[in-house]
Design a protein around this nucleic acid. Structure first.
Lengths: 252, 252
DNA sequence: CGCGACTTTGATCGCCGTCAACAATCGTGG
DNA sequence: CCACGATTGTTGACGGCGATCAAAGTCGCG
């Protein structure tokens, strides 16, 4: 269990000292994996002019929290770079990883319908965030983009439920790798080569299996020539086989 | 797999012929388990005056669908009486039960962020619905109550993920029974005596286990004196033991 | 009354969780 | 830069939970 000081996002790495405050439109988002899909940008025309990306972009280090369960929920966060995990701690002190969020995702959506965060969310590596305080959205007049993001997130949860209810270890692992591959494909990043930012323990917890099974399953995939693994580094040799192993997807 | 004709809600049992159209406020909701919590009532002051509960209340029979996946999503439905299950059909024709919804619940929330329903939803017994076409909400100006219901639904999904990822057969079964007990408690209905409206098959599917295991687990509970079971009828003898078996709950 | 759907019970077996030991890597301070 | 401990990941052996196969029992309904 991670324990450290900062609850609120930490120092602003972009050190905008002396810069004039720039509006989102002026500040370049060209290097962002979320360009064209970023919720903040999509909401921008409806966002109060007080909002300046520059002063709302922060860097947090690995193991530092963005927010914790029960903290007052006031902001959404867009992951510009890096990755985080959100988790819940159960009564008996066990952790349950609810989700991994990679560059391009939004976290803290729970703030929209609750005054407290439900999960705790912590950086898995050095991570850059764009913070969007809810104040900047006109009086909770929620817009289509937000509902769409919420709905996307519900669809992902449903997929996870299918994985947990129906699939064996191989199927879960393959699905997990494909989640990342698909995310990368959707964000102009290599879809068959990436580094995992989370530990085997986190993966096991997320997929509802033992850490040893994660290890063995990856080994099996490697032996079959489906992937190459070296610790955190993953290279997918044959995406189609992985899809086959993952099996069951929603038919639409 | 259920196959029958009607996609749209069927005949109006309340046969309002000759009745003057009544507004929600005039029409009595006193007998409804959802009184005080009904989303429709909470939204009512913001709902267009065209809305008349009388003509939007329908009865559907068992195995009849409220909507199907990919149907254009235009309405929310409030369950006045009865129960439904929502499910998804995977590529290979398998069904996955996503949720059971009992009297007092809202279904079709997916309509808010998508133009198509994601799940199919079918009545488990004779069921009375209050339909709320989205048109009746002013131009998608979504309100707090809706976000709250969405958030509640996300919290429930997260609970299910914990159950599927962490709990064994006993824990899943106990949690399932407690879901119903808690729902009943929240809706002024007996919390330790109820009839299940779904088959063992549906329960097994929902909980990610085999139908035989559902049967055996219930038997085990009965042998231990935790519950009495006779087919669909459940009587909980000792709620606290059930909580103990369910184990892991979210600590808040 | 008889058929079909649902449920229960028993026997068997394999997947995967658990325990244990080892290997590789990282981070930290000397 | 190296040494050391801590963290993370791998591999093997074993056993139990629960899936699967099979069959009989129970209920609802035409």
């Amino acid at each position: 269990m991670q324990l450290e000081k900062s609850t609120n996002p930490v120092t602003n790495s972009q050190g905008g000292v002396g810069y004039a405050k720039l509006s989102l439109e002026i500040l370049s988002c060209a290097d962002c994996v979320g360009r064209g899909k970023c919720l903040i940008a999509r909401l921008h025309r409806n966002i109060d002019h007080k909002y300046h990306l520059q002063e709302n972009r922060n860097v947090i280090q690995r193991d530092h929290h963005i927010y914790r369960a029960d903290n007052p929920a006031k902001s959404l966060y867009f992951i510009h770079k890096g990755s985080v995990k959100s988790y819940i701690v159960t009564e008996d002190g066990d952790e349950q990883v609810m989700n991994f969020h990679l560059a391009g995702d939004v976290v803290g959506l729970e703030a929209l319908g609750s005054d407290k965060y439900i999960t705790s969310t912590v950086a898995l590596e050095k991570t850059t965030l764009c913070k969007l305080p809810l104040d900047y959205l006109g009086n909770l007049n929620v817009e289509k983009p937000i509902l769409e993001v919420l709905t996307q997130s519900v669809i992902h949860e449903q997929n996870m439920k299918i994985i947990l209810a129906k699939k064996d270890a191989d199927g879960r692992m393959a699905s997990f790798l494909l989640f990342i591959a698909q995310h990368n494909a959707n964000h102009n990043q290599p879809e068959n080569h990436f580094d995992l930012s989370m530990t085997r323990q986190d993966i096991a917890n997320y997929l509802g299996m033992a850490i040893e099974t994660v290890s063995r399953t990856l080994r099996k995939f490697r032996d079959r020539g489906v992937i190459q693994v070296k610790r955190r580094s993953i290279q997918i040799a044959d995406l189609s086989v992985l899809y086959q192993i993952a099996g069951v997807r929603i038919s639409r």
